[in-house]
Design a protein around this nucleic acid. Structure first.
Length: 242
DNA sequence: AAACCATTCAACCGCCGAACG
DNA sequence: ACGTTCGGCGGTTGAATGGTT
């Protein structure tokens, strides 16, 4: 069983703790969270360290107010994905899942309930999704993201997505996210400040299925998202209702 | 000025799946 | 097959802050 060391600090982080954590992660990198408290000399549990880093200390976090475009995107993605905050946040550059969740709970939930019978106000620039349903297709083997993965085409079964039950679905990498963003939202995601040339490789065509065959562990920041693919594919039906 | 109420959001909690021995 | 550890997730809490009376 997982145990939390006795006497670990809880509550708000001090500036000193932030410095130690930041320094440690800059030195050793993200990951190996169980080693971070020791390495950083922090009397905190690994989860607390991870959360502090991801939600507050990580560079490029956007702590500004949510723009109309972001709000619009959150609403649409929530309709699509349910309370899968990490997936939604993954499509909002600089936003954390905690931020998105908090924003939803404090701002949007009430708003949507109160306007349940009314359409979303059109005062904001509304992004109309151009829905392109994925066609059966396999990945090109040479894609860096697929190295070491076995591509299978016939093992994908439709799943019920009517219940957006939270599940620890692997989240896609930047390129994977961008690919789906492109397919879901079309070119307007450029308005969100997304840089399409992070490393220059964008998938050209949809996927039917990928399986992480366990040939090789996924690299840091490289996740198996075959589950996401399956669910997203099913979600096209929901999108079609718009 | 003080008391009360509402809102926000950082942080904790408990659970899950993957990996590993 | 089973138990343990780890990373990750969504739900929830509670302190801090702001607004109202």
């Amino acid at each position: 069983m997982e145990t939390v060391p006795l006497g670990v600090r809880k509550g708000a982080w001090t500036e000193e703790e932030d410095k130690l954590l930041k320094k440690c992660i800059e030195k050793y990198g993200e990951g190996k969270w169980y080693q971070i408290p020791l390495r950083a000399g922090l009397n905190r549990c690994r989860k607390s360290c991870r959360l502090r880093w991801l939600n507050y200390l990580r560079p490029n976090i956007n702590r500004g107010i949510f723009t109309a475009d972001e709000v619009d995107l959150i609403i649409r993605l929530h309709k699509l994905l349910g309370n899968r905050w990490s997936l939604i946040a993954g499509r909002l550059p600089g936003r954390t899942s905690n931020d998105v969740k908090n924003y939803w709970n404090t701002h949007l939930q009430k708003k949507l309930i109160s306007t349940r019978e009314e359409p979303i106000p059109k005062t904001q620039k509304t992004i109309v999704p151009k829905v392109t349903r994925p066609q059966p297709r396999i990945f090109m083997k040479h894609q860096p993201l697929l190295e070491g993965k076995t591509v299978i085409a016939d093992s994908i079964q439709p799943r019920d997505v009517n219940l957006p039950k939270p599940s620890p679905t692997p989240t896609p990498t930047n390129n994977e996210i961008l690919w789906w963003d492109y397919k879901i939202l079309g070119p307007e995601i450029d308005d969100m400040g997304i840089n399409w040339s992070i490393d220059g490789s964008i998938f050209e065509e949809p996927i039917l299925g990928i399986q992480s065959a366990g040939d090789r562990p996924l690299q840091q920041n490289q996740r198996d998202w075959s589950d996401t693919v399956i669910e997203d594919v099913d979600l096209w039906n929901l999108l079609g209702d718009d």
